[in-house]
């Protein structure tokens, strides 16, 4: 019953909050064209991830040996690889897989790291110590080597790449959430919620967590780029995604062998796209930080 009563208030609040946020977003984009550029790039990546297979001019998997290793031309915009597959089509179609790995791993670590961190920051004590030591242990390894190890141990699948990427990012999320929750632990509104008769877990979820979310969203955007790079890196060294599936990392790995013989385009274009994707998410994170940063809300 009480949940029913909370709903309209929550809706009204989110509606008011949303329109204010939108107004502020417009202001930030106008003030900072680079953020607008990154939003544009993001939309472009989103479109190719969703509609890629229907938009591309060639079948990304169909080999055509008569057209192998052709330089970029009007017919093959990014050229063709050693099996005559169209690199442009493969780059576009690969967006979906790379985005899926990045999104899923970031979502996973957001839930795991966010919850662990908020609980550690709010309760302190042994939860804090356990979360802190687990984070330290993960941070003690070179992160990419750790990810390699996890994928090698768990098995060579896309799911395991997602899990490995999530694990190596865990400390970033846990520590951020911990510090944000920790400074709010003794805030006046948390005491007030206790006086209203809220139980501790309830305060954690309804009072503290929503206030930690904005910064976590920024962190998500910033780690998206890293997650894409990590997935591509794992594929590059032959872990995770297997040929002939189009994926940026593998494509760079395959093309690397041909650079010496002058076929630069095979590695260049997927690499460039990868760079652009990481670039886009990092800028997006900067823009988001400006949007949620109350200092900028004059």
């Amino acid at each position: 019953m009480s949940a029913l009563a909370e709903k309209p208030a929550a809706q009204a609040q989110s509606a008011a909050g949303l329109s204010a946020t939108l107004r502020h977003a417009r202001y930030v984009v106008r003030e900072n064209p680079v953020t607008a550029l990154s939003f544009g790039l993001f939309v472009l990546f989103l479109v190719s991830a969703v509609f890629g297979p229907w938009l591309v001019p060639h079948d990304p998997l169909a080999s055509n040996t008569s057209a192998a290793l052709q330089a970029p031309s009007a017919r093959y915009w990014f050229g063709t690889d050693q099996l005559g597959r169209d690199i442009f089509s493969r780059v576009v179609v690969a967006t979906r897989l790379d985005m899926w790995i990045a999104t899923a791993s970031v979502a996973l670590v957001f839930v795991m790291g966010g919850l662990a961190g908020v609980a550690a920051g709010y309760y302190g004590g042994w939860i804090d110590r356990v979360v802190g030591r687990v984070s330290d242990t993960i941070m003690a390894f070179p992160l990419f080597v750790l990810a390699m190890g996890i994928v090698a141990a768990l098995g060579n699948t896309v799911t395991n790449i997602i899990i490995a990427t999530a694990i190596v990012n865990f400390p970033l999320y846990a520590r951020l959430a911990r510090s944000e929750a920790n400074i709010r632990r003794d805030a006046g509104f948390v005491h007030a919620a206790r006086l209203s008769g809220n139980s501790e877990p309830r305060i954690l979820f309804t009072q503290v967590l929503p206030n930690v979310m904005p910064l976590m969203m920024v962190q998500m955007s910033l780690t998206m780029g890293y997650a894409i790079l990590n997935a591509a890196g794992l594929s590059f060294i032959g872990l995770g995604v297997r040929p002939p599936m189009p994926e940026w990392g593998i494509m760079v790995a395959e093309g690397a062998a041909f650079i010496v013989s002058g076929e630069w385009w095979i590695a260049l274009f997927p690499g460039l796209t990868l760079m652009l994707a990481v670039f886009c998410f990092n800028l997006l994170g900067d823009g988001l930080r400006d949007i949620v940063d109350p200092q900028r809300r004059t």
């Binding site: 019953m1 029913l4 009563a5 009204a12 609040q13 805030a187 007030a192």
Partner: peptide, 27 residues
């Protein structure tokens, strides 16, 4: 300022103790 949750409306903040006490049901 510090004693109000920045993400709760005034009505939600005032209603919080009432909702927790469960004395009233209907919205």
């Amino acid at each position: 300022t510090d004693s109000l949750n920045p993400r709760f409306t005034a009505a939600r903040a005032i209603a919080d103790p009432i909702l927790r006490a469960g004395r009233m049901g209907a919205r």
